[in-house]
Amino acid sequence: DEEIEKWIETLLKRNISLRVNGKDLEIGSEEFKEWVEKFIKEV
């Protein structure tokens, strides 16, 4: 979905790490990609 890709790009540009389930996810890491894929499937 384009919306999500733009959102991810924005996050990448800002180099933010997300806190997911109490863990810091490094943007661009494998864990982050897995989380994004799960997130996309749920939406």
Rank of each mutant, 00 (worst) to 15 (best):
residue 9 E to H: 07
residue 19 R to Y: 06
residue 33 K to G: 02
residue 20 V to T: 04
residue 40 I to Y: 09
residue 41 K to N: 05
residue 5 E to I: 14
residue 42 E to C: 15
residue 3 E to H: 10
residue 26 E to I: 12
residue 41 K to A: 06
residue 19 R to W: 06
residue 31 E to L: 09
residue 40 I to C: 14
residue 41 K to Y: 04
residue 38 K to F: 11
residue 11 L to T: 01
residue 29 S to W: 11
residue 21 N to D: 06
residue 34 E to A: 15
residue 20 V to L: 13
residue 30 E to P: 13
residue 36 V to E: 00
residue 3 E to D: 12
residue 43 V to T: 07
residue 17 S to Q: 10
residue 1 D to V: 12
residue 28 G to E: 04
residue 2 E to M: 11
residue 28 G to L: 07
residue 18 L to T: 00
residue 19 R to A: 05
residue 39 F to Y: 09
residue 36 V to M: 10
residue 1 D to P: 10
residue 10 T to M: 14
residue 2 E to A: 12
residue 13 K to D: 05
residue 13 K to I: 10
residue 21 N to F: 10
residue 16 I to D: 02
residue 3 E to L: 11
residue 15 N to K: 14
residue 3 E to N: 08
residue 26 E to K: 10
residue 27 I to G: 02
residue 6 K to Y: 09
residue 30 E to G: 06
residue 4 I to K: 04
residue 1 D to I: 14
residue 21 N to G: 04
residue 2 E to S: 13
residue 24 D to H: 08
residue 32 F to E: 00
residue 22 G to R: 02
residue 4 I to F: 10
residue 4 I to L: 12
residue 43 V to M: 13
residue 18 L to G: 00
residue 33 K to H: 10
residue 34 E to I: 14
residue 32 F to S: 00
residue 38 K to M: 09
residue 15 N to H: 14
residue 4 I to P: 04
residue 30 E to L: 12
residue 12 L to H: 01
residue 22 G to Q: 03
residue 39 F to W: 12
residue 32 F to T: 01
residue 10 T to R: 14
residue 8 I to A: 03
residue 37 E to W: 15
residue 18 L to N: 00
residue 1 D to C: 15
residue 35 W to A: 04
residue 27 I to H: 04
residue 38 K to I: 05
residue 27 I to N: 03
residue 24 D to P: 13
residue 27 I to V: 10
residue 19 R to I: 07
residue 16 I to Y: 01
residue 31 E to C: 12
residue 5 E to D: 11
residue 16 I to E: 03
residue 11 L to P: 00
residue 41 K to D: 03
residue 37 E to H: 13
residue 28 G to Y: 05
residue 26 E to R: 11
residue 17 S to T: 11
residue 43 V to N: 06
residue 5 E to A: 13
residue 5 E to V: 14
residue 25 L to Y: 04
residue 7 W to G: 00
residue 1 D to G: 11
residue 1 D to Q: 11
residue 30 E to Y: 10
residue 10 T to S: 11
residue 13 K to E: 05
residue 3 E to F: 12
residue 10 T to H: 13
residue 25 L to W: 03
residue 38 K to A: 09
residue 35 W to F: 07
residue 38 K to H: 07
residue 32 F to W: 09
residue 36 V to R: 04
residue 33 K to Y: 13
residue 18 L to Q: 00
residue 27 I to M: 05
residue 26 E to V: 13
residue 29 S to Y: 06
